[in-house]
Write a protein that binds this DNA or RNA. Structure first.
Lengths: 110, 110
DNA sequence: TCTCAAAATAGAAATAGCGCTATCTTTTTG
DNA sequence: CAAAAAGATAGCGCTATTTCTATTTTGAGA
């Protein structure tokens, strides 16, 4: 019963998936996008157009669009097209929960 | 009362700090290091030498050392030197809590 | 149809991150 | 003292990200 081969059963697939997801969230602009959407998912407004996001976050439309694409590809956000505009929301409850957790940890009492 | 200038008061400093922290965590090897340390902080073993981590995570000593440095610089881990060895632990309770949250979200029922 | 606005995309340049080998410091041991 | 072991660090080539400008696509309205 030596310690050869008693590694903890961490599922590498889970870890890779989590790392990809966290990486997608770990950019200041993307995190701010998530804060805007997450905060308002709680308060009531759950639809944000790209233009809304551009105004709230503050950078070029092109830049926002690319960051939104990254978040969309990773299933962190989902989009709905309505006529001329595209609206974005947090993809599911798990993501919303994660965003709330992060705000507690990073924006709480520090 | 138009919507000009009703941006939500997100503290950009908080967001930047959070993004840097998340970025440091969002690499498969670093996340695995955190899982190893976090899991054992719960179970009782709270001291892991670099060699222990190398064995558990599975890559070169040099590579682990560099990733540990990144986690240390961001105050996610702290280290204690005892004679020949250096032991690593999760820096504080907030980080431990965050790691637990992530495991719930990513390794829960999926 | 013509034009405008919303959103996405392409291409390019700069920067950052990764992992490797080799080297260096510090401590233990013979 | 010499050799070995534990960690940390430096330098290098490579790949991935980021952000910018310019362009394209799609739908709305005069």
């Amino acid at each position: 019963m030596e310690d050869q081969d008693n590694h903890i059963p961490f599922n590498d697939a889970d870890i890779d998936r989590a790392a990809r997801c966290l990486k997608a969230m770990s950019h200041p602009l993307r995190l701010k996008i998530l804060c805007v959407l997450g905060n308002n998912s709680i308060l009531g407004k759950d639809q944000f157009s790209v233009q809304d996001i551009v105004k709230q976050v503050g950078t070029s439309q092109s830049n926002i669009s690319q960051h939104l694409a990254i978040l969309r590809e990773k299933d962190i956000l989902k989009s709905t097209k309505e006529a001329n505009q595209v609206f974005y929301t947090i993809h599911d409850d798990r993501m919303l929960q994660l965003i709330k957790m992060m705000r507690e940890v990073f924006c709480g009492n520090c």
